[in-house]
């Protein structure tokens, strides 16, 4: 099972994205500055945008989806219940999971962005995907929800999971690291070896790396454990 970008070029106004690389099974983190092309890459991976040249191939992938960075872009139902149903899920189960029991008749556009994001991610997480692309999944979530999402990602065993994010603190355990730099995709390699080459590393992680300490992974616990090594 793999997602392959073969000499992909995509031009949008003055911006050009260039990507080549193979995403195999595991959790892949793609970081990058604002406007670096993370969302364009995610859209190309999901096939909702076509490259100008090159190809994006999904080999052995039978089910896939993309969680767009704005949860409101997914809404097709007029009530929360209809919205959950549109994902082919039972409304009661999902509402129970996100702590919003009894709110199935609420307007999905009238709830807070954090609640909408939580609801949307729950719908995604309750289905099984061969390829799942999460574009800025942490934005708008409170720290408790971010930790919950990290736990779920940590349990993601089968399939390919791509996470495009600039979250600095609450990060999940990842297998591979990628970086978008001015529209170009760079493969940094397997974690933890790849961490040394991570230009967009969160500040605390960067401080550790500067001191020659390589955490086991990028989670809050890994960073804390590595920081304690300094303390001795």
């Amino acid at each position: 099972m793999e997602l392959a970008f073969e000499a992909v070029h995509k031009r949008r106004g003055d911006f050009t994205l260039r990507a080549s690389g193979i995403f195999g099974p595991g959790v892949h983190l793609i970081s990058g500055k604002v406007g670096a092309g993370k969302s364009t890459l995610a859209a190309l991976a999901a096939g909702i945008m076509a490259p100008d040249t090159g190809t994006v191939k999904k080999n052995g992938v039978s089910s896939f989806t993309l969680s767009l960075q704005f949860p409101e872009w997914h809404i097709t139902g007029n009530t929360i219940g209809e919205e959950i149903l549109s994902w082919g899920l039972n409304a009661e189960d999902v509402l129970m999971r996100v702590g919003m029991k009894g709110r199935d008749h609420d307007d999905p556009l009238a709830i807070s962005r954090g609640e909408l994001k939580r609801l949307h991610l729950a719908c995604i997480c309750m289905r099984k995907w061969d390829l799942l692309i999460l574009d800025e999944p942490f934005s708008g979530l409170d720290c408790r929800q971010k930790q919950e999402l990290c736990r779920w990602i940590g349990e993601f065993r089968s399939g390919i999971l791509l996470i495009c994010t600039h979250e600095s603190h609450f990060l999940p355990p990842v297998d591979f690291l990628w970086e978008m730099r001015d529209g170009v995709l760079f493969a940094l390699g397997r974690v933890p070896e790849a961490l040394a080459a991570w230009k967009q590393a969160p500040p605390l992680l960067k401080s550790l790396l500067c001191q020659g300490i390589l955490p086991r992974n990028i989670t809050e616990d890994d960073v804390r454990e590595a920081a304690w090594k300094i303390r001795g």
Binding site: Q147, H169, F170, P203, R224, R231
Partner: peptide
Amino acid sequence: RCCYYPPSWRLGRGTGL
């Protein structure tokens, strides 16, 4: 003990980070 506690304070103490 809560996740709201600033990570830079939690990790920075005694580590110089």
